[in-house]
């Protein structure tokens, strides 16, 4: 048994705050946040698609920012605050974006939907914080928007910003409509993550909780 004591540890005790609740687990270093959520915590809303960061099905919010949970080792995120699709709404009340997906019929098989939802919540917060995208016109190029001001979520912006989420059923047109509706509701500012458990959020919006819309 001496060997057991001298061999360096390949597992660690890790605490993840998931949807506001702390979970402490001893986990093999190879375990990803995705596998920890699904296999250890029974939170199977987050889906495993490609498991290589290419499809976006595993998207969750870490400190209020969207990330592919399949590419995060849990041990490297000890103490992190994670919001999954289960935590977007409040109890039985769905997040407005979830309602928009239902109303717009923004899915077919539904497998990519949790990732689409978490990613879209991240997109709304990023656009509200003024983060540009590949299709955002730069200031000065005939663009009146001052640097750092919220970026209006046009369809082109939504398609570009959501390109990390693949939908093999091809529900894209309705997904774009659902997100566009959320952007319209409050200039993109009412759709962010509701996690209030110390999330860092996007820069310019340090709490991870979007400010109230000022209409």
């Amino acid at each position: 048994m001496d060997d057991h004591h001298t061999r360096p540890a390949t597992s660690s005790t890790v605490t993840l705050h998931v949807n506001g609740t702390p979970h402490t687990q001893t986990t093999d270093h190879r375990t990803t946040v995705l596998d920890l959520l699904r296999e250890h915590l029974g939170l199977t809303g987050t889906k495993k698609g490609c498991d290589h960061g290419q499809c976006g099905a595993c998207t969750v919010l870490v400190e209020g920012r969207r990330a592919n949970s399949c590419l995060l080792f849990a041990v490297a995120h000890d103490g992190a605050h994670v919001t999954t699709v289960e935590g977007l709404g409040e109890g039985e009340r769905r997040h407005p974006l979830q309602d928009a997906f239902v109303e717009r019929d923004a899915f077919q098989c539904g497998y990519c939907t949790p990732g689409q939802l978490c990613s879209a919540v991240g997109v709304l917060a990023e656009a509200a914080a003024g983060h540009p995208s590949h299709v955002t016109p730069p200031p000065g190029a005939g663009e009146p928007r001052p640097e750092g001001a919220p970026v209006p979520l046009t369809r082109a912006e939504i398609r570009e910003r959501m390109s990390g989420n693949i939908c093999r059923c091809g529900a894209y047109p309705h997904i774009v409509e659902a997100i566009e509706e959320m952007g319209d509701v409050a200039g993109g500012m009412d759709g962010g993550a509701r996690n209030t458990d110390g999330a860092r959020g996007v820069p310019g919006n340090p709490s991870g909780v979007p400010e109230e819309a000022t209409r």
Binding site: R66, S119, G122, P132, P138, R161
Partner: peptide, 19 residues
């Protein structure tokens, strides 16, 4: 340096760039 911001935004996905 717009070229630097543009190059970053032309790569990967929003999720990957966040990490």
């Amino acid at each position: 340096h717009p070229v630097l911001s543009q190059a970053l935004l032309a790569g990967a996905s929003g999720q990957l760039r966040n990490v």
